[in-house]
Amino acid sequence: MKIPRVLNKKNRILLKELTKTDFKLRYQGSVLGYLWALLRPLMMFAILYIVFSKLLKIGNDIPHYPVYLLCGTTLWSFFTECTSQGIQSIIVRGDLLRKISFPKYIVVVSSQLTAVINLLINLAVVIVFALINGVTPSWTWFLIIPAILELYLFSLGIAFLLGSINVKYRDITSIWDVIVQALFYAVPIIYPISMVASTSTLAAKIILLNPIAQAIQDVRYNLITTETITTWNYIFNPSVIVPLVIVSVVLVFGAITFRRKSKFFAEEV
């Protein structure tokens, strides 16, 4: 069988235009426009910071805690945006799928590229805050790239899998909203993992086997402070590869499901 070139010229143009359109439409009609891409996560951070750091006094033992928190919320927003946009994308672009023939994955990827752009803007803010907060720049900063890539691939896999089921069973959108809410507390974003570790090492280990937690902790470790507990410096048995296995399985299974179901999107959407 001949393998078609995944990103030929036509598909690249299409991907670019769809992403541009998505990005423009997102902030269409608002006075501050693109600034919202920046303001929204900063405001979310401000709320969490006031509630958890100032009122509940959590995380005062971690160096650079505000940046540490901002870094976590930034990556979390990226993950939720990527998955929910990706899952919705096939339905949102249903009109297009019914009218022209093109590789369906373009719709999913283009919807997520908006989140990628937002992430890049916000990471720049995190870095500025880190420098103000007295974090010294280091070569290890480049090591955040594989962790972010892993987080993206995980959300891509989820979007492929749930997005293709969502075409027929729209319940997925609501179910995913609940799962995201639950995951938010299962991942050490607002609370430091050290807090869990001090009461139960087993619970902390289980939390760290979640690929989202692993990726966020890796970024914090390389970007902000090496005093961060990561999957790699906390778990010393073969189960340490569990996060990578989860990501790979979800991605492969998602891609296969999407490939199989995408033939019928035009009829079913």
Partner: peptide, 29 residues
């Protein structure tokens, strides 16, 4: 294929933006 005219036209975008979008769907760079 032209199953319909103006595939991908979006009312919230300007004429200019829609022309480029529609062109991309027809395979124009």
């Amino acid at each position: 294929p032209f199953i319909e005219l103006g595939v991908g036209f979006n009312p919230e975008l300007t004429g200019r933006e829609n022309v480029y979008m529609n062109g991309a769907l027809l395979g124009f760079s």
